[in-house]
Amino acid sequence: MSSDFLSRLAVDLPIFQAPMAGVATPEMAAAVSNAGGLGGLGLGAMDATLAEDSIRQTGKATDRPFCANFFCHSSEVRDATRENDWIARAKPLFDSLKADPPQHLRRIYASFRDEDAMLNVVLRTRPRVVSFHFGLPRPDQMAALKQAGILTMASATSLAEARRIQAAGCDAVIAQGYQAGGHRGIFDPDGPDQRLTTMDLTRQLCAELTLPVVAAGGLMHGADIARALSWGAVAAQLGTAFVACPESLADAEYRERLGRGGTVMTSAISGRPARCLENRLTDWCRGATRIPAYPDAYDLSKRLIAAARAADAPGFGAFWAGTGAAQVRPMPAGKLVQMLAQEWRTA
C-alpha cells in the first residue's frame, strides 16, 4: 500500500512536512518536495488571495507535488458574555504590558466548509494534494475536488474520526497522535479525547481501515520514520522537525526556545486544544475555564502577543511544538529531508 500511495502522489520518500500554518512557507514546501518528500502549506489562517499567492509561489519553486492544508472547523455560536469575561481576565496582563485589551473579539478565520472561496482557489491552482484539519469539507466540496483529480487527506485523532474520513472518500488519513505539536485535529473539541499516542493510533487505524494511514506526532528523526512505517503507516508527517529550518517563519525566540523542549496542551490560546512550548503565555492559560470558541479566543492571544512584542517582553509567543522539540536540528529543509531519508534507510 505504501509504494502504491506514494506512486499516486508521485512522491519519492515517505516523508511529509506538516503544513504548520504561520510557520511553513512556499520556500519550505518547495524545498521539501524538491528533495523527494511532500511539502506542505498551512493556508487555513489566510484569506483566499494570500492562499492563492502561496500556492502559486510554491508551484513556481517546484514542479513536484505538494500539499495545501485548510481548516474545516465547525462555526460555533458566539457567547458575548463569555468573550467579555475572557477579555476582563486578560486585562491585568495587557496592563502589565502597557497596552489596551480589545473591546471585543473577532472571528479571525473562516472555515473551508462555510464558504467556497478557498475551494475556488484550489480548483484554479490545482495542487496535487489537499488536506484538512478539524473536520471535513461538505460533500459537494469533496465531489468538486475529486472531479478535479485532486488527492485528499484529513487528520484524525480517533478511529471514529478516521472512519468518517474514509466514508467521505478521502484518499488517506493522517493519524495525529497526542504528541503532535500545534492544534489537535479533533473534530469536536468538547467531545471525549482518548489522547492516543501516535503509535497506538496508527496501529489501530491500520488494522481497522482500508485507507492509507500517515503517522504524525512526535516524529523527529529517520529512526522515527522507520518505526512509523513498521506500525503500518505509508508515510510519516513531521512538523516540529522543520520549525528551525531557515525557510521557517519562526522568529528568533521561537527557534531558541525549541531546543529546551517542554510542552503543554492547552485550549486557552486559541479556543481549541493545541500543544505549545511552555512560557509566560501558557502560564497565564493554566487553569483557565469558560474559554471562548475557536478562533475567537485566538484573536485575543494574537493581540496579546503583539503587545508583548511591542513592549519587548519575551515569553508570550504561541510557539507550537511537539514533544520532540528538544531534538530539532537547524538546517535547510532540503538538507533535513536528505538526512531523514538516510537515517530512515539506515534504521
Rank of each mutant, 00 (worst) to 15 (best):
A18P: 00
A18K: 00
P19H: 01
M20E: 07
M20P: 02
A21M: 13
A21Y: 08
A21H: 08
G22A: 07
T25H: 13
P26D: 07
E27N: 10
A30R: 02
A30H: 07
S33P: 03
A35F: 04
L38V: 05
G39C: 09
G40H: 06
G44K: 13
T49G: 09
T49P: 05
A51C: 13
E52T: 05
T58A: 14
G59T: 02
A61Y: 08
A61W: 06
D63C: 14
F66L: 01
N69A: 10
N69L: 12
N69F: 15
F70W: 11
C72I: 10
S74P: 11
S75T: 15
E76G: 12
V77K: 13
R78P: 05
R78Q: 10
A80N: 03
R82P: 03
D85H: 09
A88T: 08
P92K: 15
L93S: 13
F94D: 08
D95E: 15
D95Y: 10
L97M: 13
A99E: 04
A99M: 06
D100P: 04
H104M: 08
R107I: 10
R107S: 09
A110E: 14
A110Q: 13
S111M: 09
F112T: 00
R113D: 02
R113S: 00
D114H: 03
L119Q: 02
N120K: 05
V121K: 06
V122K: 01
V122H: 11
T125W: 09
R128T: 12
R128L: 14
S131K: 05
F132L: 04
H133D: 05
L136F: 02
P137Y: 12
R138C: 03
